Simulated assay, not measured.
Amino acid sequence: MHIKRFKDAQPYVAPNHYECHGLRLQGFEEGGPTNQWVGFSQFLPGGGAGPDSTPFEKVYVVLEGEMSLSVDGEEVVLGRYDSCTIPAGEVRVLTNRSNETAKMLVVIPYPPEA
């Protein structure tokens, strides 16, 4: 078992994200998960990510607030406890269009070079 307290989570900067503060909850550490890592993203109003894609799938879970997600011109709003999977290579845009901070878990496999 590997426990990591929230107070010990380290910040990270996610590429092509803006007005976003990321914390690594699990991963890239001794005794942690071996096939994926878990991030906690806090998007300020107007914050977001993209457009971009990754060569591996990822899972988003909105914990608080809401995030607009656009893929191929289709936009959906994810609210509290909504989740989605973004397949490998799919270009997405995330935007917090609300006036409140949105909080989201992100689960991503390790990149091949990790």
Rank of each mutant, 00 (worst) to 15 (best):
F43W: 06
P33V: 09
F43C: 07
A14R: 05
G89I: 08
S70R: 03
G73F: 02
S41G: 08
G47V: 01
E57S: 12
H2M: 14
A49W: 02
N96K: 06
T54N: 14
M67V: 12
P111G: 09
V93T: 14
N99P: 02
S98Q: 06
P55S: 10
E66C: 05
A102G: 05
G50C: 01
E19Q: 07
G48Q: 00
G22I: 02
S70E: 10
P112A: 14
L63S: 10
D82W: 05
P15I: 06
P33C: 09
D52Y: 10
T101R: 07
I3Y: 15
R97V: 01
Y81K: 14
N16E: 08
R97Q: 03
A9I: 07
K58M: 09
C84V: 11
T85S: 14
V38N: 05
D82R: 06
L44D: 12
C84W: 06
N35C: 10
V61P: 03
E75M: 07
V107K: 05
A49T: 03
V91F: 03
R97M: 00
Q42G: 04
A114H: 14
P51F: 02
E113M: 09
L63K: 13
L78T: 02
S98C: 02
P87R: 08
L44Q: 08
L25W: 05
F43Y: 15
L44K: 10
Q42I: 06
Y81E: 13
V91M: 01
M67W: 00
G89L: 12
P112G: 08
G50R: 01
C20T: 13
S98R: 05
T34M: 09
E90D: 10
A88R: 07
F28E: 13
G31T: 04
